[in-house]
């Protein structure tokens, strides 16, 4: 019974992680690609961590709860890095399938600092 639950959780987690990366590789512009990793992977890793939590708690050496920390951390940081990434992309005027609002164009041209010119990171 426990085995089945664990297997389902692990497989769901792995499938969501895979779909997230598939979205990253497959979608066409940067802003749509941003959706895959931020959503699909957080749930994927989340359910993997829940599986790990159940697995180690069932070993009989006390309850194992420290996986909650990683889950919580990922859930808090994923939106922040997604927002920063899209902000950086808008600042650098990365191509978009959708129409970028005129408001952003205006504000980004007014900023006084120049975008760094680097060829590779």
């Amino acid at each position: 019974m426990l085995d089945i639950l664990l297997s389902v959780l692990i497989l769901t987690g792995a499938i969501f992680t895979f779909i997230g990366s598939l979205g990253l590789a497959r979608l066409r512009d940067f802003y749509t690609r941003l959706h895959g990793p931020t959503k699909a992977t957080t749930l994927g890793v989340g359910s993997l961590l829940i599986a790990s939590m159940i697995h180690f708690s069932a070993q009989g050496e006390g309850v194992s709860l420290h996986e909650i920390l990683v889950t919580l951390f990922l859930f808090i940081t994923a939106p922040v890095s997604a927002h920063l990434l899209s902000k950086a992309a808008l600042h650098r005027r990365v191509e978009s399938q959708a129409q970028v609002p005129a408001q952003i164009e205006e504000a980004e041209t007014q900023t006084h600092f120049a975008a760094p010119t680097v060829d590779r990171l």
């Binding site: 802003y31 749509t32 941003l34 959706h35 931020t38 959503k39 957080t42 859930f75 808090i76 994923a78 939106p79 922040v80 997604a82 927002h83 899209s86 902000k87 808008l90 959708a98 609002p101 408001q103 952003i104 504000a107």
Partner: peptide, 28 residues
Amino acid sequence: LANTICLTPGTVSAWLSPDRRTLVVHGL
């Protein structure tokens, strides 16, 4: 609010205007 939008259906908060009056959201 921005974090919530990032975590919920097909939307990512993309940009906050410098005067903090509008939030630009990118929907999938």
